[in-house]
Structure formats: C-alpha cells, structure tokens
Amino acid sequence: MLRHVSVDSLMPYIGVFILVFAGSAFFPQVLSVDYLTQQLQIAAFLGLLATGATIVILLGHIDLSVPWVLTGAAILSTALVGSGNPVLGALAVPAALAFGALIGMINAAGVAILRIPSMVWTLAMNSMLLGLAVLNTGGFNPRGESSELMITMASGDLLGLPVSFLIWIVISLALTWLLTRTPFGRYLRSIGYNEKATYLSGVSTPSVLFAAFAIAGMCSALGGVMLAGYANQAYQSMGDPFLLPTIAAVVIGGTSILGGRGGLFGTIGGALFITLLTSILSVMQIGDAWRNIIFGVIILVMLLFQTLRKGAPT
C-alpha cells in the first residue's frame, strides 16, 4: 500500500495530526487512549463506505445509492436475526452482503449496459430502495435485532484495537492488492482515464464495472451490518448522514473525482480525518447544518487543489 503513496494521499494524515494536537489544546481528552480507540471504531463504519466509493470513483463514476444500500442491508440482517429462526439468523451477514452485491450489479447494469450516467442511475436506485423499505415497514422503524456476530464486528476488540477497525484495514489491504497487483486494478484505472480507449484495446469494460460496483455494494452493506450491530437495531434513514462524508473522505484522500488516479491509502486517512473532525465539531457543539457546510467546503477545496495540480506543468 505504501508504495503507491502520493502527496495528495498524505494530506489527510497531516490533517489528522493537526486536529489531534489542536483539539487537545482545548479538550485534553482527545489525546487519551480511550478517545482515540473510540474514533478508530467509529471511523471504520465510514471507512468501509468510503472504501467501496473509492473503487467506483476510480472508474470515473459515482455511487449515490450508498445510504439505502447501507440501510437495506441493516434492515435485512436484523430482520433475519429477529425472525427467531437460527438458520436464518446465521445467514444474516451473508444475506446482507449478497443484497449489497445485487444492488451493485443493478447499478452496473444501468451504467455499463444502458449507458445512463451513474449519478442519475444510482440516485434513482437509492430512491427506489427508500420506497421499498417504507412499503416493507409501513414507515415505522423496522423490527429485528442484531446477532452476537454483528455486535462483535461492531463493538468488539482484539489486542486493544476495535474489531471494526481491523476488519476495515484487512479489507482495504485486500482491495489494495487487487488494485495494484492484478489486471483488474489496471483495467479499472484505465477505464477511469479513458473508458473508450480501454474498451478498444480489448478489455471487457462492462465486466470491470460489474465487479467494481458489486464490491462497492458489499462494502456499503457491510457498513450497514456493522452499524446495526453497533446500535443493536436498524432504523429508517440510518444511512442518510453518511453520503456526503463518504464522498468527502474519498476526495480528501486524494482520489480524483474524474477517475483514474488515487487509492485506498489516502481514503483511510480521509475517513480518519472526517471522523475526528466530526467528533471535535460535536464537542464544540457545532450543529449539523454547519458540519455539512464545512464538509462541502472541504470537498470544493480539495477538488480545486486537484485541478490546479493536474494543470500545473511537470
């Protein structure tokens, strides 16, 4: 992973150190082990979503169905556990991942086969998933509960580190290997640079898109499973607050929104930065409206920075 480090991907880590030490000047508990460990745990939820988003953005596309893929997976997994059937309960996590992969492939079908812009198609999918959830629950919070496995994945610890953080890092390392050591990774970046040229070179670009969107869907679903384990329930619109921070984490991590350039090392730093920034803003009692404004400004600044770097002479 470190072999593919760029200046852009290092910036969020610098931001993390600045936030930690600046925050500690006003809130000394920021430097405590308990506080930092808690931030790693919470960052894992956002990090999993941003990991999947990075794969899609490297293609030059974007997935706006993240909120309700997350929520749908959480509703499905808790419903299976709450059914009282041990067999269905054991299938809760695999079923949620399969759900995420299915939605990802439907997204890919719209983009790769029907040639509909990913922003429009995935936003429509998000809206349809919302409608299906409301029909299923009648507009009320869904019934169900989390399994012990889901709770351990979200809130357990191993050797002093949160299990959720370890899961996130393992998945990031596996996907980094896929992106840097396999033809799939080369094809994915090539599509981000120039999809038409990649197709004309003999690459099955639809296959790459299907795989990438399926991976993104499973990452969003796993994030939903872990959030349900953290809260011990699923609830309506639990994924809505994550869309803007997810995109912000990817962009802050140095991945070009136009595709072809970036990686997961920067995304990890971006997720840590966003999580820590959100926590400090909460401690400072900054409202949600101002947080959204701050996230939006950060995204615009990073996009401007990337544009200026791309246009600068080498």
Rank of each mutant, 00 (worst) to 15 (best):
S32P: 00
F26P: 01
M105C: 14
L97D: 13
A44Q: 04
I57L: 04
L46A: 13
V33W: 13
L91V: 02
P94S: 06
W68G: 02
A101Y: 02
Y35H: 08
P67E: 09
I62K: 07
S77H: 07
A90Y: 06
L36C: 06
G60N: 10
F99K: 12
G52Y: 05
V30R: 04
A43L: 10
L70H: 02
I75R: 07
A73F: 03
L49R: 02
D63Y: 06
S32N: 08
G89H: 05
A92F: 02
L97I: 09
I103P: 01
V69F: 00
L40C: 09
L31G: 06
V66T: 09
L58G: 01
T51F: 11
V69R: 02
L31S: 12
I106T: 05
L36I: 13
A90L: 13
F99N: 11
V81G: 01
A50T: 13
L59P: 00
L64M: 14
L80K: 12
L102N: 13
Q38N: 15
A96N: 12
V30I: 15
V56G: 04
L40K: 03
L88V: 05
I75K: 07
L102A: 15
V56Q: 04
L46G: 08
P86R: 12
A73V: 02
I57K: 04
L40G: 04
A73W: 02
L88M: 11
L58M: 12
G100D: 11
A50M: 06
N85E: 05
I103W: 02
I42V: 14
L59D: 03
I103R: 05
P86V: 13
L76T: 07
L70D: 01
A43I: 10
F27S: 05
I57D: 05
N85A: 07
P67D: 11
M105A: 15
N85I: 15
G89T: 13
A53F: 05
P86E: 05
L97G: 07
I57E: 09
T37M: 14
A73M: 09
A101V: 10
S77A: 14
F26C: 01
D63V: 01
V81N: 07
L64N: 10
S83V: 05
G60T: 08
V66F: 04
G89F: 04
D63M: 07
V56C: 08
G84H: 01
P86M: 08
Q29G: 04
L97R: 07
T71V: 10
Q41R: 15
F26S: 09
G100T: 08
I57T: 13
P28S: 14
V33P: 00
L97P: 00
L80C: 03
L97M: 12
A92S: 14
T37Q: 12
G89E: 12
G100K: 08
I55F: 03
N85Y: 09
T71D: 01
G84T: 12
A98P: 00
L76S: 10
L46C: 07
D34A: 15
G60I: 06
A101K: 10
V56P: 00
L36S: 08
F26E: 07
A53T: 12
I106M: 11
L91T: 06
G100I: 03
T37Y: 09
W68M: 14
G84Y: 06
T37D: 02
G47A: 08
I42G: 00
P86K: 10
L49V: 10
A95T: 09
L88P: 00
P28N: 09
I75G: 00
P28T: 08
F99R: 03
F99Y: 15
M105S: 14
F99D: 13
I57W: 04
Q39D: 06
